[in-house]
């Protein structure tokens, strides 16, 4: 749902729900997901409703995702890294 104005930024490779994609150095995880065409990043632990990043400044907790296997991380506050594994957060997290 977002497009990049400039394409020259330095790229990093990552996966979102197992699919290889690229993002730019300096992108937050939430920005990377939205730039890759994802419409939502999680489903709620209550009704299962789909939610997407809302505030992009760390206060709303709508951008919770699983990063490198760790659940419920704030995607808008974490920058992408080469090789990062990002997964949609489906409902409640697990305890493993």
């Amino acid at each position: 749902m977002l497009r990049r104005l400039l394409e020259e930024g330095q790229r990093v490779r990552l996966t979102i729900d197992g699919k290889p994609v690229t993002a730019c150095v300096g992108d937050s995880v939430a920005a990377a997901m939205l730039s890759c065409g994802l419409r939502y990043c999680r489903t709620t632990p209550i009704s299962g409703e789909k939610r997407a990043p809302y505030c992009m400044m760390g206060v709303c907790f709508e951008c919770l995702v699983t990063i490198d296997g760790i659940n419920n991380r704030q995607g808008c506050l974490i920058e992408v890294r080469e090789g990062m594994r990002i997964d949609t957060q489906l409902g409640r997290r697990t305890v493993e």
Binding site: P45, N72, G91, R92, R93, T94, V95
Partner: peptide
């Protein structure tokens, strides 16, 4: 008391 986020039944 402390309380965590919601988790799947464990």
């Amino acid at each position: 008391i402390l309380v965590t986020e919601r988790a799947a039944p464990f």
